[in-house]
Simulated assay, not measured.
Amino acid sequence: MQVQNETKPYDTINVTPMLDLAYVLLVVFIIMTTASVQGLQMNLPKPSSKPATEKHEIVVVSITPEGAFLFNGEGVSLEQLEARLSAAKARDKDMQTMIQGDAKTRYAAVIEVVDLCNRLEVSMGLVTTKIGV
């Protein structure tokens, strides 16, 4: 008996093992995704039902795109700003300073005001929207 040894090229590819692997990977991905995303437990502060009775002074420091400083809408230099913030802190130790900058304002100018507030130990916040809107 003679065995024929023909080398015939394959004209089809068996994709069944590749599809089995794809399905297994898909199932593993679905299981791992649903197992890892279960939510976060957060303890958020509850709002107070009492109205705030304390009134503290609020100062707005604006910085123009050119780098000029405005203290409650009035143009001042950095030295004048420091003097006015010190005077406001002397009047009300719990005063708030809101720092407002334009989208085109130099970052260094904002940092100068933040450093000044830190040096004077003044409470501050950054305004992200227009005041009064």
Rank of each mutant, 00 (worst) to 15 (best):
S49W: 02
I31S: 10
T16H: 06
A22P: 00
N43Y: 09
E74N: 11
L21Q: 08
L21E: 03
V61C: 01
K55C: 03
P9D: 09
G39H: 01
V76G: 00
L40S: 09
E82A: 15
K50C: 04
L78M: 12
D92P: 11
V76R: 00
E74G: 02
R91I: 08
D20F: 14
V59W: 00
I58S: 10
A35E: 00
L81P: 03
S77W: 05
G73S: 04
E66Q: 15
L120I: 08
K104Y: 11
G125R: 05
R119H: 14
G125F: 02
D102Y: 06
T7V: 12
P45F: 06
E57F: 14
S36Y: 08
T7Q: 11
L116F: 09
S86L: 15
K89V: 09
T97K: 06
G125E: 07
V27N: 06
I131D: 00
M95R: 07
R119M: 04
V110G: 15
A35Q: 05
A90R: 05
V24C: 12
V113G: 08
L81A: 08
L120D: 01
V133T: 10
V24N: 04
N14Y: 01
L21I: 12
D11I: 12
A22R: 06
T97N: 09
D92H: 03
N14Q: 08
V133W: 05
A88I: 05
D92K: 05
R84D: 13
T128V: 02
D11Y: 10
A88H: 03
A22C: 05
N72W: 00
G125A: 10
V133I: 10
Q96S: 13
A108H: 04
T129L: 07
P9A: 14
G132P: 01
K130N: 13
K93L: 11
L21Y: 08
F69V: 01
E66M: 07
K93C: 02
Q96N: 15
L40K: 15
V24G: 05
K89S: 05
V113I: 10
K130C: 02
D94P: 01
G132K: 01
V60W: 02
R91L: 14
R91D: 09
F71S: 02
G67E: 05
E6P: 05
M42C: 12
N118Q: 15
T34I: 04
Q4V: 13
V37I: 07
V24Q: 11
Q2F: 13
M95E: 02
S123Q: 11
V110Q: 14
N14M: 06
D92W: 06
P17H: 04
T53N: 10
